[in-house]
Each structure stands twice: as C-alpha cells, then as structure tokens.
Design a protein around this nucleic acid. Sequence first.
RNA 1: GGAGAGAUGGCCGAGUAGGCUGAAGGCGCUCGCCUGCUAAGCGAGUGUACGGUGUAAAGCUGUACCGAGGGUUCGAAUCCCUCUCUCUCCGCCA
Length: 424
Amino acid sequence: MLEIKFVRQNLEEVCQALEKRGDTAALDTFQSEESRRREILSEIDDLRHRRNKNSDEIAALKKKGLDAQNLVLEMREVSARIKALEQDLTISEEKINEILIMLPNLPHSSVPTGKSEAENLVVTKVGTPRKFDFEPKPHWTIGEELNILDFERASKIAGARFPLYFGDGARLERALINFMLELHTIRHGYTEVLPPFIVNRKTMTGTGQLPKFEADLFKLENRDFFLIPTAEVPVTNIFQDEILDESRLPIYYTAYTPCFRSEAGSYGKDTRGLIRQHQFNKVELVKFTTPETSYDELEKLLKDAESVLQLLEIPYQVIMLCTGDLGFSSAKTYDIEVWMPSQEKYREISSCSNFEGFQARRAGIRFKRKDKKGTEPVHTLNGSGLAVGRTFAAILENFQESDGSVVIPKLLRPYMGGKERITR
RNA sequence: GGAGAGAUGGCCGAGUAGGCUGAAGGCGCUCGCCUGCUAAGCGAGUGUACGGUGUAAAGCUGUACCGAGGGUUCGAAUCCCUCUCUCUCCGCCA
C-alpha cells in the first residue's frame, strides 16, 4: 500500500507510475474523498474536545453538589452529532481505503518502461545450453519412463495439475529442498523458518495477495483461511504490526513450504509436466532491511538464488521485468529463467523482488532508528531460491542421456546417498 | 468438542460501586551527574497513529488507542453484548 499522505501530495507521480504499469485508478475520487475525510475528522476532533472539557466540568459541578442538567442536555446533542459524523468518517475512510488498497506499488526508477514481458531486459546469461546428439525429451516423458513421476495417478487422487513423485523422484525433490536450505543457511546466512501453510485474510492482505487476487488462491470452505501461494506470505508477516529495532536489521529468512495456486485463467498453458501445478514445493528467501540498503540487498538476494543453478551447473539467464510486467506489490523484480532443452527456451524458476515499504505499510512492519523520533516502514524483499519442481524438471531435461537415464548433479549426490544417476 | 480463567505501555504489574489514569509502582532503555574501574547511587527522559501549526527538523497543539467490534451514558480500561486470541482441566488425536 502507498501511504495516504504520499498519494495526496504526489498525485501526479502516482498517476504516471500507474500509466507505466498499464493500470488505472480512481484518483480524482480519491482526492475529493480524502479532503472530505479530513474535514470530517477535524470537525469530530473539535466536538470531541468540547465534550471532553464539558464532561470534566459536569464532574466538577456534581462533586460540589451543583446542578449540571443544562450542560448534560447540551452535551447530549453534541454526542449525537459526533456519532453521526463518525459514521460519515467510516464511510469516507472505507471509500479511500478501497482505492488505496488496490493501488499497485510504484516502479523503481531503474525499471525499464514497457508494456509487456516482451520488453523485459535480459541482464545476464550464465552457462551454455548443452548440445544434444539426440532429441531431448520433455521432463514429463523422462520422469514417467523412469517411473519417478506419475501424472495420471496424481489426477486420479486430486485432479489435473498435481504432482506425484516416486522412488528416486521423491528423493530428488527432497534432496533439492535440503540442498537449497543448507546452501542458504550455511553459506548465505539465512535463518531457516518453517511457517504455517494456512493463513488468515489479514496476512494475505499484508503481502498484497488480497483483496485483488483472491481468485488465484485456494480458500478453505466456511473459514476465512487460505492455503499459502508462497512462503513469502507467512514469512513476511512474521513481524506484522511490530516495531523492530534498527539494530536487528537486516533480517534474512529462508523457508521451505509447499505452495498452492489455483492458477485461475491459465487453462491451456503448460498443461503437461511440472511447470504449472496447483501444488508445488519452493524454498523462499525473505529479507527485512532498512530503506537505504534494500537495493543492495536485492542484488545479493538475486546472487544467492542464482548460486543454486550455478552449483547445479544448469544454464540460466536473468531478466529485469519492465513496468508492464511487474507484480502488483513490487517496485523492482528480477526473474531467473532456467534453460529447458525440450522447449529450447528459458523458463522462469525464480522471481526476486524489492517491495520497498509497500508490504510493510500494509502489514504494519516498522522500525525505529536509534536517534530519531517515530517509525518508518521496513523494506521487504523476497525471491525464490528456487522453485523446487521446476528445478527438478530442469535437471531431468538438462542431464538426460540417450538411454533415458538422468545424471544427478555432483553437488546433489551427497543428498541422494551418493547416487550418480537415476535409471530405470 | 465440554468446563473454567484471562487479554492494560518494550517487559512485569496496579487500577472495576463509571469522571482528575496515556494510564500508579517496578524492571529495562537513553542522557546527565557521581565514583580508582566495575557495581551501586542520584537527577531527567522514555508509546503509537491521525489532524492542525511550522520551509523542514525540533517544538507546540487537538483527537484516538487499556485484545477487536458494537451498545448504555453528558462521560467507559472500568457496565452490557458479539467476536478473536491465550492459559488450565477433561475428551479426542499425529
């Protein structure tokens, strides 16, 4: 969420930012409603001031045994007026909030302007896609032929777009989770967190999934609970409504969780394989920082995520999202895209973003500077480190052999009991 | 699922026959003093949000906040209702 005062004082800038994103909002309504709100508020404050003073006076009169009836009658009217105004205020605040809560974040100045993903910027390419002397198969074929993936039975159990791993497949998935968690905790200084996989509405609103994107979420029936679409949600909300001491920052958390997405509106895209599932595993990186360090921290977070692919020796590229492709809450986002030989394309495997104070304001995560009065929102960042299912798919495709077996990346072998290859 | 207890400031903890309590007292923290060092001691300060004033910071000023929402009242941390959460006991359960 943007700060109400900021929007009021920088209406022009907010407008331009929205335009760059290809978004619109009822900002003229916002402006008139916001000035109305302040009018009501100051009238209420005046009346309440009067009420407070006169209440004291009534108390004083009564204490002396004097009659205060006139004043009581007068105050009865004042109170009624206050009550009416308070209702107006609530309505006005709701209107303003409706607009404010739907406003996306402002893109950072370094973000290229563009309409769609076609205008994203390739930042780096790492590794060279392998030349195959046979036709590389898609990962779902490899997985099914090795009996480590079974999409048909998965759909019997749950439905389309759910995974079912067997044997070395299940083990490889688990090995990847452990490999990533240990890399980030031991080598990169993150603290491991294992959060709830179900969260409430307030938490979903805090990170920006609600109210705008409810259709993308799985909601529990008859209860105001949602399945998390990413660990970002529970982990970022750890400090919801708290004031942190500046000395605690930056805070680095990493968390493995399953992620649940209803993928509304994605029918027909990536219908086969592990790329687009209702349930998938992910190791997430989350940071809480001061405003002055958050962009350096974003670069570091990106490197931390990239290192997973480097260590696994899988080719990838990093792109910077343009304004039109930027997520709702993000001020700047890098995507890491991994090479998928069967498609001869780079596919998203991680998204690393700086949300600046956007989520922190929604979630009430603030910090206090040592020698300064008041509080400021922290900056929150997160990135996948990485999406496990997609990494699994990339390994199958990039390390497949003509005989249908898959070579396990060297650094992963200790997590696979020393195994070097998955065979039938 | 059943029965009971409770939710007050960074923490602990007073305050319920409604008014002078943004909130006693203690701890912690900050600054200053004192002291061979440390400890102790002394003094002052120490919530958040929104509005007004101020070029801005500071300051000044008004309002709100004692789990959340609503009600009664001239006036509520204190009375009433609803909800949420925490704790204890019983049941169930990995």
